[in-house]
Design a protein around this nucleic acid. Sequence first.
DNA 1: TTAGGGTTAG
Length: 700
Amino acid sequence: MAMASQIGIVGAGQFVRTHNIPRLAADVSDVAFKAICNRAEKYFAVEESELWEYKGDTEIVDNSSKLGPPMVSASKTSVTSLQKFALNSKLKVVPLLESCMSLKQIKQAHAHMITTGLILRPIPANKLLKLLAFSSFASLSYAHRVFDQIPTPDLFHFNTMIKSHILSPTSSHDALMLFRSMMMQGSSILPNQYTFVFVLKACGNGLGVLEGEQVRVHAIKVGLEGNLFVTNALIGMYAKWGSVEDATKVFDWSTDRDLYSWNIMVGGYVGLGKMNRAMELFNGMRERDVVSWSTIIAGYVQVGCFMEALDLFHRMLQEGPKPNQFTLVSALTACANLVALDQGRWIHVYIGKNKITMNERLLASLIDMYVKCGEIEFASKVFSNEHGLKHKVWPWNAMIGGFAMHGKSKEAIHLFEQMKIEKVSANNVTFVALLNACSHGDMVEEGRNYFKLMASSYGIEPQIEHYGCMVDLLGRAGLLKEAEETISSMPVAPDAAIWGALLGACRIHKDIERGERIGNIVKELDPNHIGCQVLLANMYSVCGRWKEARIIRENIEVSGRKKTPGCTSIELNGRFHQFLVGDRSHPETKQLYLFLDEMASKLKIAGYVPRLGEVLLDIDEEEDKETALSEHSEKLAIAFGLMNTAPGTPIRIVKNLRVCGDCHQATKYISKVYDREIIVRDRIRYHHFKGENCSCKDYW
DNA sequence: TTAGGGTTAG
């Protein structure tokens, strides 16, 4: 290292050449080096907060403490590794770069590359770019500045930079700018197949049709359109835009197709929710790999066909490749939504037996599955046992959301605070979960507080879903005026869903005047929003204004749009049984209705009084009203569960809509009379019924 | 001595 130069970085961030210019790279001219130093000087002067001073031959002194917080001990290691590096040959810069553990260390390595002139060599420079673009401590702005310092960037540099911009849709425009500036380099650089793969992907992610077509023309010009990778990228781009017709054209005309091409096409249909077409394609595949299976299973999950998803998962286990984390995430999501606890448990065991590496997504799905199957305590155990993934936000979000759904608001808030201690940064999903927890626990003050803290302390601007949580929180608590003011204060236009939250609150608190006004706003905004119209009709029904209720219902019917029918399901021995209101399609209907009659008498003896006010249709006779209530899908499913399980077994049911007030009341009595724990999941949350009480404390 | 495509929560 005796030959090495010392370039000190002193004072207000100036590069000072202390003595000899590096000669490690023989081909680096003094002029070129000075140019680099000048650029680096500018960069450090503007941006650097930690400065380094090179003293003597090997000693590096950290003077950052004068300017900011003291250095962490990790930097000591980096000093050592830099020293070691300096003593060795210049070629070791790649391992040094790869061993960097923080942006700070990358900056050190960068400084060293400048002092030694290595920054002028294409490959090390590209390594540095890649590190800044793709590592976990990436900084795209830094990468750009380094890129700007390269006097004549080569194809690799351009490709790396373009690739760095495809991850976020907001920056895909920059990818195109880079591509253009590359094409303008006096034709000295020709794009290759890699370039097109990256640019086309950026186009699919955030740019318009026009840009994509332009890039495609360039690919044709340089004779790369038919390249397998480029073709697949093209198919992917069209698929991302939702234009499967164009994707199909490229796919059909392509002479060179592989498994990826097929998978991208399947993914295209899946993205549009066209599962029939996706399945046709899937069935037509000569070979299918784990991605093919995962794509199609995830597709069924996304459109809410959970049974189909699980059926395919079982088919895969029998005839397909071994599932991976992606597949299992989808399978667990299906189990969670079906409340298929047995199958969910089986997958948990499968993960262990097959030594499938747990990642944060898989862990989150596992937690979510236990949460949604009513096993909140077990979910918590799974969460606590996975120490290795504690620094990732996903499992935390799953757990906080789980506590929220189960009405365990205090636990959710505690976990959120714990997150802070463990230095896991919360994201927007965390706040949705947290605000939901406040909402379900009637914790208005806490909710208001966290909502404020979001932007001020966490730097997360509230999005429409956070406003939705606040409207829900305030509305539920009866603060309808404040809820409406919250909507008015939103920086974005409110959608039908957010008005729906307020409308729901109006219904609970029977504020018919406000409800009507809001109903009209929604009608203007989105005349086809069935949910809100149903809410409005329900509100009229609850207030006994049958005429208005009937008009709305008739309008819905005339419009030909269907309201989602209430449906409750139960899993027994791995099989699912679904019930609609007054459903008589089940093979065991006869026994079921006999049991239901018997149940009704037992409940009455125990003191249950039907809440006839909950009947939302205008039925004249009291007796008929009672029948309508007694045949609600929740009651059918619970009765079926009671009939088919041993005494003492907990019953888990899931309803696709909110539970009705009468069913809620009746379930309390059922749990007491039959001495069963009944876990009901509705569209929003959980109710644990045990001995005449519900975990929601009647606040839901 | 440098690179490439498809699947994962609310």
